[in-house]
Amino acid sequence: MAEFSWAPRSSLEKALVAGAHGARGIEAGVSLTEIRNFDLIQVMARRGKGAELAKATKARFGVVPPDAPKAVQTPDATLIWSGPDQFFVLSKGGKHTMLTLAPALSGPASLSDQSHARVLISISGAKARTTLAKLSSIDLYAGAFPIGAAAATSMDHTSVTLWRGGDRPDELAVFNLLVFATFAESLWHTMLDAAAEFSVDISHSEELA
């Protein structure tokens, strides 16, 4: 009997090389961090069940789900708007999986597991906005895209979910990006090309920021 290993492997396992990338001799203007092995559940309200889902969500998370393009932080999850009547529950450590969420939400909502369908990349640094301006048509100016703002949008013709997390300790903005897993390596290379002139600091993490 063969011994099987079921080691998860990120779509960026090969492409992501931790360390410095791009222009040398300057301080890294962009930090790119991949966050691995998260749970991501798509929650879609059923017809006429918006209010019921809001109630069930409030009971489970202490907050109602975002009904506009926003990301709402709870102690152990982030609820991210992903379209009309739908949102993502992003969490780590098995706290909110299909198994645990279905009993709470599957009456008023349909749930679909997207944990493996996306790659999560966090982008920050003094040149984060300048880099993202090459990839995104969204206005990420501080006043136009404040902390907690979210967008279902496209980068390089690839659908992404983008939201602004809490600022870094040095007060620089943090942008989080969920990209479809099969597109991730391609978009990663595009991001590296866009950021290379600013010098990039690359890492991966098991922790949500």
Binding site: A45, R46, R47, G48, K49, G50, A51, L53, P84
Partner: peptide, 13 residues
């Protein structure tokens, strides 16, 4: 305008 079936969770609300 959104199509009738986009945002239908509010139907009847």
């Amino acid at each position: 305008e959104a199509a009738a079936g986009a945002g239908a969770a509010k139907v009847g609300a």
